[in-house]
């Protein structure tokens, strides 16, 4: 019997495929050069050459949105991978060693929650000047405690299982058990979390770039396109609509995909909600 896939998983997968596909396509093809200006053709209405029209400098809006997708995905990917690896490693360590190491790691994780990405990015920007690298670091930083907690919680459950006990009795050391037995068994929980954090990272990057703490000109980013559009709202309100829609589609997509993956990995949850 084939199991039916959850609706949120299918919907999420379609939206994510759309966004990731667009980002991938922008690597090899955009309708126009996203940074190519043509002042004489500014605020052009949608047409066959410019599907979504042009902006205040005559740049093709669709091409900019595509380039923005690429940047958003890249930032979210690097930030989640970076923060996730550190967080998972800390969580595994805490769970494997227990005692004061576990306490210490968890208190550090609590501390991480005192610094939202925005505050961390503000500190980095004040000292080093605003840049995309600082934005990535700030977003990665807030991911560390999230992953550390999820990993440690899931790992602690696996450590109590009989086959882990058997592995210990067979003389395997704690790090080898963590790598060979714990990690593969908690991978589902980590992947679910990573998908959800991907959505959070897209939102964070957009906010930081909007505030001028992320992508710097001429790099295209959905958040930066919105901050440019804000001053033009009376003349060209449409410029403030498209980038926001892209953000919402991407965030809803990854959010639904994460929910769907969780429902599939633990069917009890889907009935509860």
């Amino acid at each position: 019997m084939t199991r039916r896939l959850p609706v949120n998983f299918i919907l999420g997968a379609v939206l994510v495929a759309l966004v990731v596909g667009t980002a991938a396509l922008s690597l090899v093809w955009t309708p126009h050069d996203a940074t190519q200006m043509a002042i004489s053709n500014k605020f052009a209405a949608p047409s066959a050459t410019h599907w979504l029209g042009t902006d205040q400098l005559g740049r093709d809006v669709l091409s900019q949105l595509m380039a923005g997708a690429r940047n958003s995905m890249a930032v979210a990917l690097v930030a989640v991978l970076l923060g996730g690896s550190v967080g998972v490693a800390l969580g595994l360590l805490a769970s494997a060693l227990g005692g004061w190491v576990e306490d210490g790691v968890m208190r550090l994780a609590d501390l991480g929650f005192a610094f939202p990405a925005l505050l961390f990015a503000i500190m980095l920007a004040a000292v080093f000047g605003p840049s995309l690298t600082n934005a990535v670091l700030a977003i990665a930083f807030i991911n560390i405690p999230v992953f550390a907690r999820v990993t440690r919680g899931a790992a602690n459950q696996v450590w109590t299982l009989d086959y882990v006990l058997a592995a210990r009795a067979a003389g395997m050391n704690r790090f080898a058990i963590s790598r060979d037995h714990i990690l593969p068994n908690i991978a589902a929980a980590i992947i679910v979390q990573a998908t959800i954090e991907f959505a959070v990272a897209i939102l964070a990057e957009a906010a930081l770039s909007y505030l001028g703490l992320g992508a710097q000109p001429p790099a295209s980013s959905w958040g930066r396109l919105l901050s440019e559009a804000q001053t033009l709202m009376y003349i060209a309100p449409q410029l403030a609509i498209y980038p926001g829609l892209c953000i919402v589609v991407a965030v809803v997509g990854f959010g639904l995909l994460g929910d769907g993956l969780r429902d599939m990995s633990d069917p009890r949850l889907s009935r509860e909600r």
């Binding site: 959505a199 939102l203 957009a206 906010a207 909007y210 958040g223 919105l226 559009a229 804000q230 709202m233 309100p237 403030a240 609509i241 980038p243 926001g244 953000i247 919402v248 965030v251 809803v252 959010g255 639904l256």
Partner: peptide
């Protein structure tokens, strides 16, 4: 609420202003 969670506050602000 699913949409509400995904909307960036600064974009919502701009839409409200519009």
């Amino acid at each position: 609420s699913q949409i509400g969670i995904a909307v960036p506050a600064f974009w919502l602000s701009m839409l409200l202003v519009l």
